[in-house]
Nucleic acid binder design. Structure first.
Length: 852
RNA sequence: GGGCGUAUGGCGCAGCGGUAGCGCGCUUCGUUCACACCGAAGAGGUCACUGGUUCGAUCCCAGUUACGCCCACCA
């Protein structure tokens, strides 16, 4: 008895493949970027850097898988794929996580404590104040922990990232690049400092940008309040923010409003503070809203800002950066004793106090009426935003400049969008911008602005005299380093300098990910090989933020688009098609399903979500991917473990049987379609066609040729070889077609008879050597098999039940084709008697008589 | 209020001018020598609604409704 040498293991399994192969890929540097001679052979990807302070959910897993599929495909097509990963660990999200995790808060007035260690039992309600330096230390400590968890997950998922290209948005390199780009923007006038009303979050005590604002329902009350005209008669207004009465600067009605026309040009007095203000006309006032006349404050909402600007009203700011009313009585207040009761109160308490005063003075008409209004919130905050005038840094983004807006809209048109219709989100956003991009944040953990200001002889900063850092000195921290030409002793001294204490918003740095990843300002060779990049994958929700901001920065710095194509992923929604969000509590964590079904199965499910399309989470679907992976394992085992089968001997030239040739030619069609689909980023179509073929291959073709492939008695050697070669060649092709989707199981099987990774193997080509093969053979065989199985199933009997006789009706071509594979047909159907061949018009019909 | 998208069997999705397909689930049967993470067969839909174009519409056009996402409004 000869020893049967097995190529495949006896009992192949999916468990543990992620661990085994991710380690091998790391050791073999399978995905390392190798710098080629020219840009043409590179495919570079601007991977979204995940916010490490958050958690990854299935939506991320799907979206990053979509990118990885394309990366793997391009690599197999022979491109040098530049696929870096970044961590967005800079900014307010990290600060917030550090505050909650360690139970601390940053107090910039405290000195650095080198012996500091965080509280052992953090109490989020009693945060310990610590210095800026200690706070930044903790930010760095925690992001390192979080990043390890993220990296492990990505490796487990099988992302073919080149980990040696990893960058983070708070690293010295990122700060240097970010500062350098900022200084160049400043020099060209694309960045500027301005004193203006901005949206302000009182919890985090920082300005926020338009892109980070979201509207939420917010309960409030309409208060009907009387102002007093010169003749003592009341003028009623309605307001939801009575606490802003003290910052009133005008009453405004529509110019056509006959009720108020007599008052235009006169002044009225507020009911509490003795402030005399004008009554003015403006077309933005709506006659049917409230009483038709509005109280304009600095600032209650964006309309107030517009009125203030267009009517050149005085600035009566009372709300401070901490969200409390100023402690000092404003100079425009006449009845100072009233203000004294409000000083230092939060807006909420001030509102109660003002309402009580109004009741007492008799100027509150009726009871406040409840209403549900929309208020603006910072997307990560939970208190409504205030509008505060302050000094802030801006990037021009076309929000105030028609020419620039047109340039950026043209960039949007130049970009290839997958799917195409997503382009609207870009143009809608650009067209809707109403101001420049505010980038400064009054926070700590971020990229510092590399500037200082000259102090005058009284020690006040002159914001017109900005001292910038030298590019060669970057990265720089102006809080600890003096500018060139100054001495540290001159810091904050009259006639000296003072640092800009703000940091850049995290988007200001992440808007430079193409420059960061590609080596701008640091590695000219790398930059020329990878930039502009080929692909910008991301989810569709951040078109207005990340995608747009990168277009802005590359337009300024490089005069081009940062990439040629953007590929948008949809969301994984909850089963009710609602967006997943922490506040709704419907977030699905990926670790469990990855553990339960395996990475290949989850990736398969991700690939079934077409570009841009949201898809509801359904755990059932994961099983289908799992089943595919298992089937790949088992079908491969069958082919490779045929007794004496030798992969080295497989050759298309030996494929002589019509059924075998038919199957291979059909597969060539699959290759063509899958290749074309992937070139168009339609990974789902490519997978579907491959998968459909694979199941037919398993259910029909393998069953049909099995006896011949085993070399049963009476089978000619050449016929057996034909089946084995066809099976082996098809397997090799299908594994490679599946490799971008299911990298683990395909690698496992491939290595049963290859020493190199499948992920560096060439993508299959559809040759012409089988062009004369008839693909109809396999179709006819499938039809015949369905009839044979149908008869056995109807008779409720085993598929192995012998068939006594068979009648086949079809046209001459069909009969000829089936006759050419008659021996296989007899074997698969366990036919004992004869086949009656009857020429007839119409579709192929097969009648069988079962043995009794 | 504006924009974009989606509406196809219980669920998830294809399709697209010539009277519907796939997967899951379901029903019935079979099987353990690739695979029970299995195989086979089957039931199940007037393709949201109303008009229009056409010889003919699920598919094109217009409108309606519902849902989702984004933006705007916020006195």
């Amino acid at each position: 008895m000869t020893e049967q040498r097995l190529i495949a293991p006896d009992r192949p399994a999916l468990e543990g493949l992620e661990t085994v192969w991710s380690q091998v890929w790391e050791q073999e540097k399978t995905y390392a970027f190798r710098r080629p001679q020219s840009r043409e052979s590179v495919f570079s990807i601007d991977t979204p850097p995940p916010t490490v302070s958050g958690s990854l959910h299935v939506g991320h897993v799907f979206s990053y898988t979509h990118t990885d599929i394309i990366a793997r495909y391009k690599r197999m097509r022979g491109f040098d794929v530049f696929y870096p990963m970044g961590w967005d660990d800079n900014g307010l999200p990290t600060e917030r996580r550090v505050q909650n995790y360690y139970g601390v808060r940053c107090d910039a007035t405290l000195p650095y404590d080198p012996d500091f260690s965080p509280p052992e039992n953090p109490d989020p309600k009693k945060q310990v104040p610590i210095s800026r330096g200690n706070f930044i230390d903790l930010c760095e400590e925690l992001t390192a922990i979080d990043e390890k968890v993220f990296e492990d997950l990505w490796r487990h998922l099988g992302l073919s990232v080149d980990w040696s290209q990893l960058y983070t948005t708070i690293s010295g390199m990122a700060i240097r690049v970010s500062q350098a780009a900022f200084l160049r923007n400043l020099a060209r006038g694309e960045a500027y400092l301005d004193y203006a009303p901005t949206m302000w979050d009182v919890t985090y005590s920082t300005a926020v940008a338009q892109a980070e604002i979201e509207d939420r329902d917010y309960p409030g009350f309409y208060h009907r309040v009387s102002f007093h005209a010169a003749d003592g008669s009341p003028v009623y207004i309605e307001t939801t923010r009575p606490e802003l009465l003290v910052s009133v600067c005008a009453l405004i009605a529509h110019p056509n409003d006959e009720r108020y026309q007599p008052l235009f040009g006169s002044t009225v007095t507020d009911p509490l503070f003795g402030i005399e203000i004008p009554v003015l006309a403006h077309h933005m006032a709506e006659m049917d809203k409230g009483t038709g006349i509005a109280m304009c404050c600095t600032f209650g909402d964006k309309t107030d800002v517009q009125w203030w600007r267009e009517l050149q009203l005085p600035t009566h700011t009372v709300i401070g950066r901490d969200g409390r009313l100023n402690r000092e009585t404003p100079d425009w207040v006449v009845n100072t004793h009233r203000y004294a009761e409000l000083a230092g109160k939060t807006t909420f308490s001030a509102r109660e106090a003002v309402v009580a005063m109004l009741r007492e003075s008799g100027d509150l008409d009726g009871d406040p009426k409840p209403t549900m209004r929309k208020a603006s919130f910072y997307e990560r905050g939970d208190k409504p935003l205030e509008i505060v005038a302050s000094n802030q840094w801006y990037f021009r983004n076309g929000g105030k400049d028609e020419d620039l807006r047109k340039v950026l809209l043209a960039r949007g048109e130049e970009l290839r969008w997958v799917p195409k219709y997503m382009e609207h989100r870009f143009s809608d956003w650009v067209n809707g911008l109403n101001g420049d991009w505010l980038i400064s944040r009054q926070r700590f953990f971020g990229v510092p602005f590399p500037v200082w200001y000259v102090l005058d002889m009284e020690g006040n900063p002159d914001y017109c005299q900005i001292i910038t850092a030298e590019e060669s000195a970057l990265p720089v921290d102006p809080m600890t380093q003096p500018p060139a030409g100054y001495d540290e002793s001159q810091r904050d001294q009259p006639g000296g300098f003072t640092a800009d204490k703000d940091v850049m918003d995290t988007w200001a740095t992440s808007s430079l990910t193409p420059q960061l990843a590609c080596g701008w300002f640091r590695d000219e060779e790398l930059f020329s090989l990878t930039f502009p990049m080929d692909m910008a994958p991301q989810a569709h929700d951040i078109i207005r933020t990340w995608l747009f901001s990168r277009v802005v920065r590359a337009n300024f710095e490089n005069g081009c688009l940062p990439w040629a194509t953007t590929a948008l992923s949809g969301f994984v929604t909850d089963p009710d098609r609602k967006k997943m969000s922490k506040s709704k509590g419907n977030v699905v964590v990926p670790t469990e399903i990855l553990e339960k079904y395996g990475s290949d199965a989850v990736r398969w499910r991700a690939a079934m979500a077409r570009p841009g399309t949201d898809s509801p989470f359904d755990e059932q679907q994961m099983k289908v991917g799992r089943r595919l992976a298992t089937k790949i394992l088992n079908a491969s085992k069958l082919v490779l473990n045929l007794p004496g089968n030798d992969p080295g001997s497989w050759s298309v030239d030996k494929v002589i049987n019509p059924a075998d040739r038919s199957m291979l030619e059909e597969l060539h069609g699959v290759i063509r379609f899958a290749t074309q689909s992937l070139d168009e980023y339609e990974y789902t179509d490519a997978l579907e066609v491959t998968e459909r073929f694979f199941w037919t291959f398993c259910d029909d073709y393998i069953e049909f040729v099995k006896e011949r492939a085993y070399g049963q008695e009476g089978v000619e050697l050449a016929q057996m070889e034909s089946a084995r070669c066809a099976l082996g060649i098809a397997l090799g092709v299908m594994l490679r077609l599946f490799a971008p989707y299911c990298p683990f199981v395909t690698e496992e099987v491939w290595r049963w008879w290859h020493s190199d990774s499948i992920h560096l193997a060439p993508w299959p080509q559809a040759g012409h050597e089988l062009a004369d093969a008839e693909t109809e053979v396999l179709e006819d065989v499938s039809t015949a098999l369905i009839a044979i199985r149908g008869a056995k199933s109807a008779a409720k009997t085993s598929m192995k039940t012998p068939i006594e006789s068979m009648v086949i009706r079809g046209n001459a071509d069909t009969l000829r084709r089936l006759k050419s594979v008659e021996s296989d047909l007899r074997a698969v159907s366990h036919l004992t008697g004869d086949i009656t061949w009857t020429e007839a018009t119409g579709d192929l019909q097969v009648e069988v008589t079962l043995a009794t």
